[in-house]
Design a protein around this nucleic acid. Structure first.
Lengths: 349, 349
DNA sequence: ATGAAAGCGCTAACAA
DNA sequence: TTGTTAGCGCTTTCAT
């Protein structure tokens, strides 16, 4: 028997088995073949190990092997269906690869973001995925200093490979759908469409604004600057902006392109005070998908990013880091109102 | 300068500073006071450290100190607003305490759940929070074998302290609200109310069924067994059950108590095929809160669990483990239809 | 086919 | 006030 209150080590097992620690180590891993340890001994040691409730100490292993078996992912927030679908996929792929996923959220705070990444680096995560980076350059600098291989998702960086959704195309499709739907509902004239949320400075938002602007212009509705309100991603702020907008217009705009789920949540804060009639003939679009949001009382067109492919591409970029800075785009999918595609994880709950 | 391509260690710093590794170690931590190292030396060493881009190796530290600084939390799934609000709170508290949170999802697969916990134990997480346990006894056994202090959340265990929401009270309140609302809409008679989802064998579901049953009975509407459908948590399964139910009834029941957000998602899969009129006079209740779900076209009453308090209580139970098995209950809150309480993280997105 | 020994980077007990 | 040393649990040469 091994000592109670303390986890058994390979030394304990070695004593029990009458073998040396290195033999035990080999027998437990897959080095025993090349060491030509007898199959019986291996079996005996493994039996002993399970009986004793042996579990390897990954800190020690990681220290010795100079790799932890951990993979990190940072996201802005957990309670957002886009980011959680990313982290769900990330976790699944990590497990397939025998790695342990560590997911951290930054609250889109640039300083916190860097601190978290330093911490992950201190734990020697083998590599790192950053989704929705707030300050990509600072992140890359930190990672470089820590010799940490990394990839950006969703919001790209210049100094590391990145994989994002095709924001331009997604936004263009969504805008077209909004224009068409609004026109249909209003009997011809699409009316006034606005774009709300995101940071005009970030890649995703700026590409989406381009897509919005181009399709609007092509439809003969070139947007003026006040139709495009890039007020960030925080619900509270979005709420203030939609309040102000409706105040100005005296009503909801006829169509609204909402640039993220968190912004949509802020917008809901405005909606709750409105009478049901206020939504008559109104059309909403949202970049990102949430099943409940797809089923509100007015039509909501949504863009669903392909998180599974996003993540797979990201792992691919980690596996063979391209020599030159790379930005891969993955096509998103337009989801019509009141559509609940059966999710990848519908069997689970 | 330290060697490129390799992270500097305290030995590098020691050489640079003309001091010993232990002095460097002390200077970097807060042991320098008790060691009475001169303030200048400390400052010099720290300066050196930042210049060299030194970061401690937490694997080594953890190995030596026999504690990792990691805290684990396992949840069934990431893409569910109840569990993400838990993990968001969990993460915030962990950070406050200078710990690094590691969150893992099990997909409600009992075998996977145990394997994940073994892995976390291998990484020597200092303690572990288990939310929505599938097999609490197996988990406790695993943790005990690994000397791992743990607490259950949401779904309790018998062999470790647990903190759950007051499921009975929450369900009772929700049921009352459904009865009243349905009666009001239908002009007096509440009609037929059904309960859908969850495992009758788990603590949360059985308490909620009790709450439902008691309030229904008190209202003179004692439910028969076919009104209570505990079909698990998977969206797909819930979808099949609601399909069958509506088939049987020829319409939606007048009121529906949905036992979790994932079940609600399954239900949406049925709803999308219905004409808008099918919802006239119908009332939904859902145990757990999601802002978008609160704003569908029919009234949705929701129960919001207080994840912040749930998590705080759990940490408290970790801090001073009670001698006897403990089950703490935290009151949830009933959220009326079309209410979007500004979330704890409304500033972030 | 197996054992001995060194060392990963850090901290803490013990010297000086 | 600081340095020396041992050791956390593991893997990996290098011997035998």
């Amino acid at each position: 028997m091994t000592q109670a209150g303390k986890n058994p080590t390979i030394y304990d097992l070695a004593r029990l088995a009458g073998a040396s620690p290195s033999t035990v180590s080999a027998a437990l891993g897959d080095a025993w073949k090349s060491r030509r340890i007898s199959a019986e001994k291996v079996a005996a040691i493994r039996k002993l190990a399970t009986e004793a409730g042996y579990a390897p100490n990954m800190q020690a292993r990681g220290l010795r092997r100079a790799q932890s078996g951990l993979v990190g992912m940072v996201i802005p927030v957990h309670d957002n269906r886009f980011f959680t679908s990313l982290s769900q996929s990330f976790e699944a792929v990590a497990r397939e690869r025998g790695l342990v996923p560590v997911i951290a959220s930054t609250m889109r705070n640039a300083a916190e973001e860097v601190r978290i990444i330093e911490t992950l680096a201190s734990y020697r995560v083998d590599y790192l995925f950053i989704a929705g980076a707030t300050d990509a350059e600072a992140i890359s600098a930190t990672c470089r200093a820590a010799n940490l291989r990394h990839v950006f998702l969703d919001l790209p960086g210049r100094s590391a490979p990145s994989v994002v959704s095709d924001n331009y195309a997604g936004a263009a499709q969504l805008t077209e759908a909004l224009i068409a739907d609004s026109a249909a509902r209003r009997g011809g004239d699409p009316g006034l469409l606005c774009f709300l949320g995101g940071d005009a400075g970030d890649h995703a938002t700026s590409r989406r604004i381009e897509g919005f602007r181009d399709r609007m212009t092509r439809a003969g509705l070139p947007p003026d600057e006040r139709q495009i309100i890039a007020c960030g991603y925080a619900p509270r702020r979005a709420r203030e902006e939609i309040d102000a907008l409706c105040q100005r217009l005296g009503a909801l705009p006829d169509g609204l392109f909402v640039n993220s789920l968190t912004v949509f949540e802020g917008v809901l804060g405005h909606f709750v005070r409105l009478a049901p009639e206020a939504f008559d003939g109104k059309v909403i679009g949202c970049y990102d998908y949430d099943p409940f949001a797809a089923f509100l009382q007015f039509p909501v067109h949504m863009v669903r990013q392909d998180s599974q492919r996003l993540v797979e591409e990201a792992y691919r970029l980690i596996d063979d880091p391209p020599g030159t800075p790379t930005l891969r785009e993955v096509a998103p999918q337009l989801i019509p109102p009141r559509t609940i595609p059966s999710g990848a994880f519908a069997e689970h709950g």
